[in-house]
């Protein structure tokens, strides 16, 4: 994996390439998950066009599933959007973390932020508090393409993986993220922060709406504010 590390800002094409390669496994998993999303959305009463458009312009897996399941159970559009917003709330701290490394005009800065997805964000982080935005773009690109392609296939009639859990595919994402966490744990501080974030999120699961526990875990990172933390 040494060839898939983020590089310096001065080598954009290398960053894009490395990011693209690092994003491919996530793109493959996303294809299967978005196929099940396409099927799920059709079952909930979405037209194929609506399912595909949603994947193309919302492009946020857990939020899309949350919103559609509320519609499927007879909920209002407002309730569905609120659930999606909570699911996506983790992108707020992620955007704040990577934000300083996305220069340009205001509209271009906000546009760059749209490329933030979990795995790309995590892998584009250099581990020292800096981010490689070109790595992020390269990594998100294949994930975006397969997310739309999988949704289209599912919505237009493919039912190969209508129930991904039957094939154990729901175990893939946690293992991927676990590998990313392990690569982040470099010392006692990062280990303690990871454990504290995990415990905080778990403790909030049953008392807060889905999505908020992960957002709350980002508060643990404030431990980095203490004196001398940046000089480690």
């Amino acid at each position: 994996m040494s060839s898939t590390q983020p590089t310096g800002e001065n080598d954009r094409s290398a960053s894009l390439r490395f990011g693209f390669r690092a994003g491919l496994p996530y793109a493959a998993v996303g294809f299967v998950l978005s196929m099940s999303f396409g099927i799920f959305a059709r079952d909930a009463g979405f037209s194929a066009a609506a399912a595909i458009v949603m994947s193309a312009i919302v492009f946020a897996g857990s939020a899309q599933f949350a919103a559609v399941s509320i519609i499927a159970s007879g909920g209002t559009a407002g309730a569905a959007v609120a659930a999606a917003a909570l699911m996506n709330s983790r992108f707020l701290p992620m955007g704040i973390a990577i934000g300083p490394f996305m220069p340009g005009r205001a509209a271009w800065r906000a546009t760059q932020g749209q490329a933030i997805v979990d795995a790309s964000w995590a892998m584009s982080n250099r581990g020292d508090g800096t981010f490689d935005r070109w790595f992020l773009f390269g990594s998100t690109a294949p994930q975006y393409v397969t997310w739309i392609g999988g949704t289209a296939l599912g919505a237009l009639g493919g039912d190969l993986f209508s129930d991904p859990s039957r094939y154990g595919l729901d175990a893939i994402y946690p293992v991927f993220f676990l590998a990313l966490v392990i690569s982040e744990i470099k010392d006692r501080t990062t280990l303690a922060v990871a454990l504290a974030g995990a415990l905080l999120a778990l403790s909030l699961v049953e008392v807060a709406p889905a999505g908020l526990p992960v957002l709350a875990a980002s508060l643990v990172a404030l431990w980095g504010l203490r004196r001398g933390a940046a000089d480690r």
Binding site: R90, A201, S218, V220
Partner: peptide
């Protein structure tokens, strides 16, 4: 520290 906290969660 954002990455370890959010990813672990």
């Amino acid at each position: 520290l954002m990455a370890p906290a959010l990813l672990a969660a």
